[in-house]
Amino acid sequence: MNRLIAPLALLCLVTSLAQAEIKSISPADAKALIENPDPSQRPHVIDTRGGYKDYFRAHLPNAHHLNFDTLRGTDHGVPVQYLPDDLTQILLTRAGVDKTRPHLLYADGAALPNDEILSATMVAYVLEKFGVNDILILDGGLSAWKAAGYATTQEYPDTKSGNLSTASPLPISLSVDEVLKLKDQPGHVLVDARPINEYLGKDDVWLRKGHIPGAISFHWAKLMAADNTHQFKPFDSVKAELTAAGLTPDKNILVYCGTSREGSLLRFYLKHVAGYPHVRLYEGSWKEYASLKQHPVETKANEPK
């Protein structure tokens, strides 16, 4: 009878994941998918860490390394802007991204100031934007995988080119003009996902200090476990805090941060963990807005709407 338990459990897992979706997944469930006896059902595993030497030292079995920052570059003097769509599609295809497959994303670094989880949510955002609708983020990251006693490897996978030939970007992003048009309209909330000191302009990072006028503050790290910043808190444990901040499912939520990584995590949580229907990301974020000196900034905190 014991011989039937593992196949039966795997069958139940595969059945539960049969419908494509975007969500987080436990290390145990991720391991079961990676080890599926049917290779055609295994996910395409993507290591999104910025440190390629970290990937060389250890990564998940069959993980392809896609440094998140290869998807961005300086444009018209403004750093870390998303690349043009045609270049992004080439890079994703080269990385094996395929609309017909599930994708398992992860990074590492369990404690702040390490924020590599933002790499995973940023890549997930880009994949979703290009029409990939089967995306799993490893809850707890590589740290949780190792803590569970699961094996890592130094071997490179034989990654085949992906297929995004029919992809056209989905309207989940925002331009600065759209943000300025929408942010004060009824039913819309503009939220800054950076740490509170940056929101208030008490930092040495940014060209201009403060935030977009009207924005409220909600630091992305509030959504993550205290002992592992790659592990998402259950929605029930943060619902009251989100509600107090005015972030409720009836709103059209416009998210930004410094470079869009922090915003990508807040958007991922609201959209795919909490299930909020209307959440979009201002890709240019503060790095772009701060350079547009014709637009005002403010440093006072705003009350939730």
Rank of each mutant, 00 (worst) to 15 (best):
V189K: 07
A144C: 01
L138I: 01
L142F: 08
G162F: 02
A167V: 12
I196F: 00
N197V: 08
A193F: 10
K146F: 01
T159D: 09
N197D: 15
P171M: 06
L138F: 00
V189L: 11
I137E: 06
G140R: 04
L180F: 13
Y150W: 08
T152V: 13
G140M: 03
G149V: 11
I196K: 15
G141L: 06
L174P: 06
E155C: 01
V176S: 04
V176R: 14
L138P: 05
A167D: 07
P171C: 09
L174H: 03
L164D: 04
T159H: 04
D192T: 08
P186I: 11
A148F: 02
D158L: 12
A151I: 10
T159N: 11
P169G: 05
L180Q: 15
D158F: 05
P171K: 12
Q154V: 14
L164K: 09
L164T: 11
K181S: 13
T166P: 00
G140W: 00
S165Q: 15
S143N: 15
D184V: 10
V189S: 07
V191C: 06
E178K: 12
S173W: 03
T152F: 01
K183A: 11
P171V: 12
S173D: 14
T159I: 14
L180W: 14
L190A: 09
Y156P: 04
G162H: 06
G149E: 01
V191A: 08
Q185S: 13
D184A: 11
L170H: 10
S165D: 13
A147M: 04
G140T: 12
I172M: 04
N163F: 01
T153D: 02
E178S: 09
D177R: 10
G141Y: 04
E198R: 14
W145S: 02
A151K: 15
S161A: 15
V189M: 07
T159W: 03
S168H: 10
D139I: 07
D184R: 09
S161Q: 14
W145K: 02
A193Q: 10
N197E: 14
L180V: 15
P186Q: 02
P186D: 08
A193M: 12
G162D: 08
P195Y: 03
P171I: 13
L138M: 01
H188C: 13
A147D: 10
L170P: 00
E178H: 06
Y199F: 10
T166C: 01
S161D: 13
D192F: 03
P195D: 10
P169Y: 04
V176C: 00
R194L: 08
L142V: 01
S175F: 05
S173H: 11
L182I: 02
